[in-house]
Design a protein around this nucleic acid. Sequence first.
RNA 1: CCAGGGGUGGCGGAGUGGUCAAUCGCAUCUGACUGUAAAUCAGACGGGCAUGUCCCUGCGGGGGUUCAAAUCCCUCCCCCUGGACCA
Length: 375
Amino acid sequence: MNLQEKIKLISRRTEEIVTLDDLEFLLKSKELLNHYIGFEISGKIHLGTGLVCMQKVKDFADAGIKVHIFLADYHAWINDKLGGDLEAIKKIAVNYFKEGLIAVYECLGGNPKDLNFILASEFYRKNDDYWPTVIDVAKNTTLARMKRSITILGKKEGEEVDFAKLMYPAMQVADIFSGNFHFSHSGTDQRKANVIARDVAKQLKFSPLKIGDKIVKPVAVHTHLLLGLNKPTIWPISVGFNKNELQTSMKMSKSKLDSAIFIHDSEDEIRRKIKKAFCPEGEVEFNPIIDWMEYLVFSREEKIIIERQLEHGGDLEIHSIDELKKIFKNKELHPEDLKKFVADYLVELLKPCREHFEKGEGKKMLEELEELMNK
RNA sequence: CCAGGGGUGGCGGAGUGGUCAAUCGCAUCUGACUGUAAAUCAGACGGGCAUGUCCCUGCGGGGGUUCAAAUCCCUCCCCCUGGACCA
């Protein structure tokens, strides 16, 4: 694969690459390059991580980059996930979470051997330079900035938090340097941490990131955050609405009931959630179903055929997201037909993963997680 | 550690001895209406069933006063604001 192909592969369907020049520089070097994406062990894996993030992980792997999945157990603990029980979090991380990511990766056609899993707590224990790196990062960042950065934990800026949460951004940044990761891959919600990493990169005494003798900044690759299936909190949109605010309110979230589909949801669950999803006819911009078509379907397909009854126009062949948007905007495609397509598509795509968690060890791991979440 | 304020249903937030299973808003669920969802309207919304002017549990935990407590008293825990301490 040549340089241009690699760049194209890594940057396809991303929201942002910081920066493209640095990406090119890294890819030109002859060194083994390391990718990283961190996941808080926060509960069930939804399609945002399962399909969007893992698809990008596969892109990295296909580009010949060593990919690392960082199981952020300490981070989950800090962020009060799973009852804030570190031991339980660790267990879920190495069982359910790892298992789930492998299973979806296979659904996407990836080879699980590509994936290198790192458990945060283990990584810290074995790495004497880790905590000095945290301090090093902290010394090069202001308190005000850390306070602003708690949005990466899903907290609102200015929200009252315990002190550990202010350590979280520094830890996340230190993860990147301690792991010697050249690529920090995340959803756009993690942008603040990645930008801090780039800002402190040249100041660090501990674990600086190097290519040869040159100290470099990690390249941030930000993938799209899927829209939740719910109606946005601000709707209908009025004149002078805040687009950012609206988009933030639309993000898929585990805390918003039925806004997310999980990688092992049953066929009925998938269909039920899609059916009740917000989907205004003719609206392409703030429409979760259109969003999912773009990031879950057209990210993989060159051509799709939407089945329709004759009275509704008969089967429809579409070749791109732009074509779909145009047709939908003109109300030449009814939401119900589109929903049916998306549901069928996901049911089929996720089948191996679903079956994996329906029996044996997989089932046990999922039940273990559910029990913990119901506490 | 001290002073003051506070902890009520999934969330926000009323209530401050009986008429409180607890106003109201949001969320959620059901039905009607739409070829989806939304919006709108009607109903449900602590749990149970025999669905009733029925039973149980309940207003941070525990104990007490009272015929009667979310409401008063004691005690413990936790949160917020400020202060004190700082070899």
